[in-house]
């Protein structure tokens, strides 16, 4: 069972060295534009190309392609099949298959969805693969995210491997006692509770001790927090973030207007 640590790929490229918030704002702006901007195909393709450029600059095109294939290939196949054959808007027949036919409208519909999904995925990958999760959390804290929220965002990543290890230990112990996890439906259902319940209980027991440890480290102290070090940021990036935000807002509004006036 694979519990990933993160998608982050260490590196020293320009993209890697951008401030985490810059990359976060970028991927959010891109997602907004891809789905809500004017001109269906243009709004999807342009941000996607930009993201591919960023990934190339970061030296991550190979890995990104693998991820896109892994995450979207099944979906793409099903989309083309289902909509090519069964989309209610299908009128223009491209290929006749007995009582069914492959329709152009359905294929076009599926194609647009696929392009959008790929574009939004590569946009978020250009952010996620070049940013260490800890730096993202710190960047958010520096920007004013309350420490409590930062804790919720940051600590699951580090707690996870420990708890995942415990599940495997419980699974091994139960299997040694004769628990079957393969086999027919009934067996698998019965395997569920003895696997899941001890794990949940033991995780909950930890909750109390963890909260005490945080308290004595001053987690709920009301003194203003200080920090050990700061992430490097530039005024240029600061401006860029605002520009991207405004651009996305503008394009979203434009997209709204465009759709309201019959664009499709």
């Amino acid at each position: 069972m694979l519990i990933p640590h993160s998608l982050y790929q260490p590196g020293e490229t320009l993209v890697h060295r951008l401030h985490p918030l810059t990359k976060l704002v970028y991927s959010l702006a891109a997602a907004a534009i891809i789905f809500g901007g004017p001109g269906m195909w243009l709004s999807a393709i342009l941000p996607g190309l930009l993201a591919i450029l960023l990934l190339w600059r970061a030296g991550l095109t190979g890995r990104a392609v693998i991820m896109v294939l892994r995450l979207l290939a099944p979906l793409t196949l099903v989309l083309f099949l289902v909509h090519g054959l069964f989309n209610p808007q299908n009128q223009t027949i491209l290929i006749q298959l007995g009582p069914f036919f492959v329709g152009q409208e359905g294929l076009a519909f599926a194609a647009l969805i696929v392009v959008r999904l790929i574009a939004v995925l590569v946009s978020s990958l250009s952010f996620v693969m070049t940013t260490h999760p800890a730096h993202l959390v710190q960047a958010l804290e520096e920007a004013g995210l309350p420490r409590r929220l930062a804790y919720l965002l940051g600590s699951p990543l580090l707690i996870m491997p420990q708890l995942a290890g415990r599940v495997q230990a419980i699974q091994a112990a139960q299997q040694a006692r004769g628990l079957e996890t393969q086999g027919n439906l009934l067996m698998r259902i019965r395997a569920l509770f003895p696997l899941v319940a001890p794990f949940i209980f033991s995780a909950l027991v930890d909750v109390e001790e963890r909260s005490l440890a945080l308290e004595v480290r001053g987690f709920s102290a009301s003194t203003p927090k200080t920090s050990l070090f700061e992430l490097p940021d530039t005024p240029a990036q600061h401006t860029a973030r605002w520009v991207m935000f405004l651009l996305a807002a503008f394009l979203l509004a434009a997209g709204f207007w465009w759709r309201a006036n019959g664009g499709h």
Binding site: M1, L152, P156, L163, V167, T181, R210, S211, L214
Partner: peptide
């Protein structure tokens, strides 16, 4: 409160880990 936060952090991990584990049972 602090204990609610630690509960939430553990709950997030439970969601992710159990989601993975149970998917192996193919139910």
């Amino acid at each position: 409160s602090t204990i609610t936060l630690t509960l939430m952090a553990v709950a997030i991990v439970l969601n992710i880990v159990l989601g993975q584990v149970v998917s192996l049972l193919k139910l």
